[in-house]
Design a binder for these strands. Sequence first.
DNA 1: AAATAGTTGAGTAAAATACTCGGTTATAGG
DNA 2: CCTATAACCGAGTATTTTACTCAACTATTT
Lengths: 158, 158
Amino acid sequence: MRLTTKGRYAVTAMLDLALHSEQGPVSLADISNRQGISLSYLEQLFAKLRRQQLVSSVRGPGGGYRLAGELKTISVAQVVDAVSESLDATRCEGKGDCQHGEVCLTHHLWEDLSAQIHRFLSDISLADLVQRRDIQSVRDRQDNQQRITAEQIACSQI
Amino acid sequence: MRLTTKGRYAVTAMLDLALHSEQGPVSLADISNRQGISLSYLEQLFAKLRRQQLVSSVRGPGGGYRLAGELKTISVAQVVDAVSESLDATRCEGKGDCQHGEVCLTHHLWEDLSAQIHRFLSDISLADLVQRRDIQSVRDRQDNQQRITAEQIACSQI
DNA sequence: AAATAGTTGAGTAAAATACTCGGTTATAGG
DNA sequence: CCTATAACCGAGTATTTTACTCAACTATTT
């Protein structure tokens, strides 16, 4: 399990989806505006999330993405794994062929750590995140900002 | 705390140092041979490790690096932190200015995770690693391979 | 028919990673 | 003093990943 900003983007986007999916599917354009992630990048991330069946899509006007399952059945670990495709060739990542076809010195240490991180993130579901107070306050701020921006755009177009 | 192969290289090198520091300082050339890490890359890593006072250096013939402290006082977390210089601009890494000067949705989540990983790696000292059975077996294999290679070189030069 | 929004692919700039190269300085041993 | 060793230092570079742009196409709604 690799931990980069890519996985963080994916979790942030999925959480935004969870927070706004009450009134139908959520478009990537909305997520892009709220979370400050580029639309095209989101498209790439969601292509992977869809392939892993974490989200389902609705095409056409009013369309967007929906969570494929219950909030509490989707873990942060699943989301990170979906976009990380960590079967890469980085030494000590897959099988133990780190050094001349044998395990390297710290192979098992990193295996332990990986398991630890995975366990931590597997225990956190989107449902858990949605209930966090710090996330709710950020959500409120973002929703207000969005409303203000939308009004400003509306005003400037008169 | 970021977790990349860079930190893994550093921990592997420090562990090699720990395993071979009984008979005086260990040269980077030796570590490079045993662990398959390029010499110049090791130089860069050890420059940082020295700046963080995790190792001390001895110049000249027979010189090399020594651990600056006791085995059990050096944690894996310290080593990873020394080479990671993670005061980078990656969103949600330093202060909470992830999005328009405010914290982003998952800021606190990643803070929690970071603390978790840091705690895990802080509890593991080089002394702990040296005692691990899996590491001792890899060490034996590597030491033997090195001896064989050294003999082959000696033979080929006759 | 037109607008919306997902889907796909190719290409690209910036950053991080993992090096290489070419030197210098300090020091031990002859 | 000379020479070999090995740390030190800075610049440069190939590869990969990240994060993103652009352009087209398809499905669906109104």
